[in-house]
């Protein structure tokens, strides 16, 4: 390392993670009635009724959520940039982890965008659609967003491995947080049970497959951002001192 490192856009990109969580929570979650979702055993008329009565709110929520979805990818690229300084981005193995972390973040953006468009479709002309069709769009969106967990796990695992490789006495990102991310990626596997349940803990609205799975992921984003912002300052100081 030598001289000053150019970190002009890193902080801005790192802030996009918490921005994404805040917008997504409100627009997709509250306006779209996805936080928590309708239980799978809720009658089709209840789901369809919500989309008809709140079509403008759902449309606004989904349009903003789709617009904000790339924020997750932008955040993921900022983290991968930080990770280049823990794993050695210029060696082949380190670079592989960096690429996987970027790929996982980019893929996650797609798996947010696509199901969001299904909810938007349900709110586009709900009066013209039968109840069962609105329910099907709602189900389809949930099946996709939940079962696409593995692409986010790629990001979680790659970042975990990359941050753990830090040889500094005080790592840029603490080991506990690197392991926490790996655990979150691993816990997502419980989503595989989600298509089998209409109610209970493993249903899409259940305590395990909704509350725990979403909250452990949504909490990881701002906590990791705090450490990433501190890490950027340390990287600047290291380069300035070199």
């Amino acid at each position: 390392m030598s001289g000053k490192v150019d970190t002009r856009y890193w902080r801005f990109c790192a802030w996009m993670g918490p921005v994404f969580v805040a917008i997504f929570y409100y627009c997709w979650g509250v306006l779209g009635h996805n936080f928590p979702p309708f239980s799978p055993d809720a009658p089709a008329s209840e789901v369809a009724g919500y989309f008809r009565d709140h079509r403008d709110g759902v449309r606004l929520g989904m349009v903003i959520a789709m617009t904000a979805a790339p924020c997750y990818g932008v955040w993921g690229y900022a983290l991968a940039k930080v990770m280049e300084h823990t794993v050695g981005g210029d060696n082949p193995s380190g670079n592989l982890m960096v690429q996987l972390a970027r790929l996982g973040a980019a893929w996650t953006t797609i798996t947010v965008l696509v199901p969001t468009s299904f909810w938007l479709t349900a709110a586009f002309r709900p009066d013209a659609l039968p109840d069962w069709m609105i329910q099907m769009l709602y189900d389809m969106a949930w099946l996709l967003i939940d079962l696409a967990y593995a692409v986010t796990s790629v990001q979680l695992f790659a970042l975990g491995v990359g941050f753990m490789a830090d040889k500094r006495a005080v790592p840029l990102v603490p080991k506990w947080l690197a392991w926490y991310g790996i655990w979150v990626g691993f816990m997502f596997i419980a989503e595989c049970l989600m298509p089998y349940f209409m109610n209970g803990a493993f249903a899409r609205s259940g305590i395990l497959n909704f509350w725990i799975e979403f909250l452990i992921w949504m909490a990881w984003v701002p906590v990791l951002t705090v450490y990433a912002l501190k890490a950027i300052t340390r990287i600047e100081q290291e380069h300035a001192a070199a």
């Binding site: 753990m164 392991w179 926490y180 790996i182 655990w183 816990m187 803990a201 305590i207 395990l208 725990i212």
Partner: peptide, 26 residues
């Protein structure tokens, strides 16, 4: 072991503790 592994272990045990609570409630 590695101090970070304990984060994974404690988080995982927490998840199983939650499983047991769900089971007990059922």
């Amino acid at each position: 072991g590695d101090s970070g592994v304990w984060t994974f272990i404690i988080a995982d045990m927490g998840a199983f503790a939650m499983f047991f609570l769900v089971f007990t409630a059922g």
